[in-house]
């Protein structure tokens, strides 16, 4: 979209104004995420830049809020050595929340990836009956507003004795994550060359062997990105945890929720910074997968 040499002055003005507007919109998108990073190193318990921070005074910066992630809720933060570590691992609120988030996220992702991938294999077969209807039902958890899903699951899981248990939250998160797996894996299978499976079969491979040796390696990028979507859904989910989870099931977003509502402290900013780093890592993995997928299919970016 380079500016042609014959552009009129008006076009020139518009060209730069337009880029300026776009720059502002990009700033609107990214600034809130970047701004919290320096703030999380604030030595004062405020949510704004102090004069010391602006003049780059090293004393105005500290790691105290990162330390607080580890120490908040500990019985005896002054202890030394092994005692400190086990105290931190077992009692610190944020550490517990981080452990819960990974634990719940892992199992929810496992369930939704396995079920979602198998279902996607069926859905992308040409002779699947009632395809659109079934697809609509399978991705409905993504469409129904979270508050309704959470309320409905709260009633049901309470009567089944699953409210305030790990299993209840895991099942709820697995349901919410499956649509993403179904969509990404189905999308990967659209470009799948079915003559490969026929070739494998004609050479005598059994269906399971064909699946593990031929189909799975080819759709792995789709499966992994689906799994990442499912994981981030669980990792970021707070409404279902609010309704279904008890104190024992507090995840990172749940802890942030009560942090924002009750005792707002820059510890939240430190946690937020760590979460942004995690999402940068996820984004990188996804991008690499996308490139690998394009390379395998023989498509190169133009």
């Amino acid at each position: 979209m380079a500016l042609p040499t014959y552009a009129s002055p008006l076009e020139r003005v518009w060209y730069y104004t337009f880029r300026g507007i776009c720059g502002l919109i990009f700033l609107f998108l990214i600034m809130p995420i970047l701004i919290i990073m320096p703030l999380s190193f604030n030595v004062e318990p405020y949510f704004s830049f102090t004069e010391g921070m602006l003049s780059l005074d090293p004393d105005a910066y500290s790691l105290r809020w990162y330390r607080d992630i580890l120490e908040n809720g500990m019985a005896n933060p002054a202890a030394m050595g092994g005692e400190w570590w086990s105290d931190m691992w077992n009692n610190a609120q944020w550490v517990r929340a981080i452990r819960n988030s990974f634990y719940i996220g892992f199992f929810a992702t496992l369930i939704s990836t396995v079920l979602g991938t198998i279902a996607a294999l069926g859905l992308s077969r040409p002779n699947m009956p009632y395809r659109n209807l079934i697809m609509g039902i399978l991705i409905s958890p993504m469409i129904v507003p979270l508050i309704i899903s959470a309320a409905a699951m709260y009633f049901f899981y309470s009567s089944a004795g699953l409210a305030q248990t790990d299993l209840g939250v895991i099942l709820a998160h697995a349901v919410l994550g499956t649509p993403f797996v179904v969509i990404t894996v189905t999308a990967t299978l659209v470009g799948f060359d079915h003559s490969l499976t026929r070739a494998a079969a004609s050479m005598g491979a059994s269906p399971p062997r064909t699946f593990f040796k031929v189909i799975l390696p080819l759709i792995t990028p789709g499966v992994i990105s689906g799994a990442l979507f499912a994981f981030i859904t669980s990792f970021d989910e707070v409404v279902a945890v609010l309704f279904l989870g008890g104190l024992e099931q507090r995840t990172i977003p749940r802890q942030m929720w009560s942090g924002i509502r009750e005792q707002i402290s820059p510890t939240i900013l430190a946690v937020a910074t760590l979460l942004v780093l995690i999402s940068i890592a996820l984004l990188t993995v996804l991008e690499l997968l996308r490139r690998r997928n394009e390379r395998i299919r023989g498509m190169t970016p133009q």
Binding site: I118, L123, P141, M153, V175, T178
Partner: peptide, 28 residues
Amino acid sequence: RNRIKAALLVLPLFAFILVTFLVPIGQM
């Protein structure tokens, strides 16, 4: 047979969503 095979692949997820999601919504 192919149709049944395809449906059987979808069945586990369908049952899972039915029990853990659609029934609760209906109950609500």
